[in-house]
Structure formats: structure tokens, C-alpha cells
Computed example of a mutant assay.
Amino acid sequence: MNHVKRFNTYKKDSVWWMIDPEFEEALQQVGLGSLSQAKDWIKKGDPSNLSSTRLEPGRGVSQIIPIPGRSESLHLRRMLHGGLLAPLWRGHLAGVGRVRRELEVNSRLRQAGAPVPQPVFGMALRSGALWKACFATIYLPETQNANQWLSDGALENDKRRVGIRAIATSIAAFHAYGGKHPDLNAGNILVDKGGSELSAWIIDLDKVRVGTPSHPKRHRELKRLIRSIQKEGNPTLLTPLTQREFIETYEDSFQKKRNESL
């Protein structure tokens, strides 16, 4: 595994942030790290001096924000607790450790070759004894989450099977390059339609850990993914035939990637 990319870390007043130096100058132009901008980005997810396009929210606010002077845009999202305890936390985190960990895990996996978005910065704002935080990656413009893409009624069966194989290949690379994703489901896989061939990205890395998962753990993650597709989408999308093809594609790709990394 490659060394993690260096991020610059700052703390000013009640604001803490870590940022990829490549983007630091551009984002300083719009007040990155200032108290007023931190409040705006973290609490509303809508920067006051940048145009932004709101995405459909998942666990909270999610925005597309252009980066001044660059061709890329940011995908900015709030970092929130999920699950049954989410209402108790009320949008807060206990500290900045989760933000730091996701930046470092995301960066290490991307440098190793895993299909994950490029991380840009994480920011946290102290709120009493707790923190509120947001996280930014480079926006992937021609993507759609796997459930939405697979459930498209206009999608031809052959193309759907190509997409399923692309998802299997991307998960195999993610595992082979050291990703363990205990919350792998169709909502945190993006199908990318922007290239000459379909591909897929793994997102929502806040619970991900680095270290090649064992065979049983890898297949538990795959079964979880299949259940999520069948539960939230059309149950016929993964028939016994396509499930077998999915697993076979995954195993072939995993072994190839593991051999390449040795």
C-alpha cells in the first residue's frame, strides 16, 4: 500500500480543516477556513459566495460546488451519524477523528488504485463540546447510484448485464487494493456512464477500513449488496444467472488485481 498523500491541517478559532494542498489556493479565495464560511458550508451546505446545485439528499445536505479557476467541481456533503442513534446526535460528531480517518482512508485507497473519488478536504466546526463537519470529494458528473441505474425501465438487458459486471469488477478492485466496506449497498456504488465503457465507483467511506478482507468477509459484503439491490430495486435484476455471473466476474477480477499488486 502506498503512503497516504499529505494533507495540510489547520485550526483557527473554532474551525478545523484538512485539505489537499493542490486545491488549497483555489479554495482560500472563497474563504475556506473562515468562521463565516465554515458555518455556511457545514450548517447549510450552501456556500454564500459560490453558485451550487443541490443534489437529492441522502443522509443530509449534498451539494455540487464549482472550484474557482479549475475545471472540476466539489461534491460537498455533511458528515452525519446514521442508524438508530442519529436523532440523538442531532447532526453532531464527538470529534474530528472521523473526518481525518475518512480523508486518510479515501486517499490511501485511491493511491493504491481503488475506484474511489478523489478526496479534497474535510472541515469541522466546534459546537459546544461537539462538532459539526462536512467532507468534499471531486464531483463525478456522469454517474448514478446503482439502484437507480439498474432500475431504469428503459435499460436494455444486455447493457444492464454489462453494468452488473462493471460493478463486480470495481468491487473486486476495491477489495484487492485493501478496502473493507461493512456498509456496502447499491446506494453507495455509482455507475459511471461518462467513459467509452461503463465503470463504477465506491463511495461513502466513513466506515471503511484498510486491509484486504478475508474470503468470507468479502462474500458477506457481496451478499449484502445483492440483498440491497433486490430489496430496494426490482428483485428480478439479480436472477440466479446474473448473480452467478456477478460472482464469477468478481472473483476473476479480484485474483487479477491481487496478482498485479504483488
Rank of each mutant, 00 (worst) to 15 (best):
M1Q: 09
F7Y: 15
K12F: 12
D13N: 14
S14Q: 13
V15R: 03
W17R: 05
I19P: 14
E22R: 12
E24M: 09
E25M: 09
E25Q: 14
A26V: 06
A26G: 08
Q28E: 13
G31L: 07
L32R: 07
G33Y: 12
S34A: 09
K39F: 12
D40A: 12
W41C: 08
I42Q: 06
K43Q: 14
K43S: 11
G45F: 07
G45W: 07
D46I: 06
D46W: 10
S48C: 08
S48R: 08
N49Y: 09
S52F: 15
T53Q: 12
E56P: 02
G58W: 03
G58F: 00
G58Q: 02
R59P: 07
Q63F: 05
P68N: 09
E72V: 08
L76I: 11
R77Q: 13
R77G: 05
M79N: 04
G83S: 10
G83D: 08
A86P: 04
A86Q: 05
P87N: 02
L88Y: 11
V96K: 11
V96T: 15
R100W: 10
R101K: 15
R101N: 13
E104A: 13
V105F: 07
R110M: 14
A112N: 13
A114C: 05
P115V: 02
P119F: 11
P119S: 09
F121C: 10
G122P: 14
R126F: 10
S127D: 15
G128V: 04
L130E: 05
L130Q: 06
A133E: 09
A136V: 08
T137S: 15
I138F: 07
P141C: 05
T143A: 03
T143L: 00
A146M: 08
Q148A: 05
G153D: 01
A154T: 08
L155Q: 00
N157I: 07
D158A: 12
R161I: 09
R165E: 15
R165G: 10
R165A: 15
I167Y: 01
A173R: 11
A173M: 02
H175S: 01
A176I: 01
Y177E: 02
Y177A: 00
Y177D: 01
D183R: 02
N185G: 05
L190G: 00
W201S: 02
D206G: 14
V208Y: 01
V208M: 09
R209W: 03
V210K: 01
V210E: 06
G211H: 04
T212D: 03
S214F: 07
R218K: 12
R218Q: 15
H219S: 03
H219Q: 12
K223M: 09
K223Y: 11
R227T: 10
S228P: 08
E232K: 10
E232R: 09
G233C: 03
P235S: 04
P235F: 04
T236H: 05
T236Q: 06
L237E: 01
L238P: 02
P240D: 03
L241G: 06
L241V: 10
T242L: 00
Q243F: 05
R244D: 15
Y250S: 00
S253Q: 05
S253K: 02
Q255C: 08
Q255A: 11
K256A: 14
R258P: 04
R258S: 14
L262S: 12
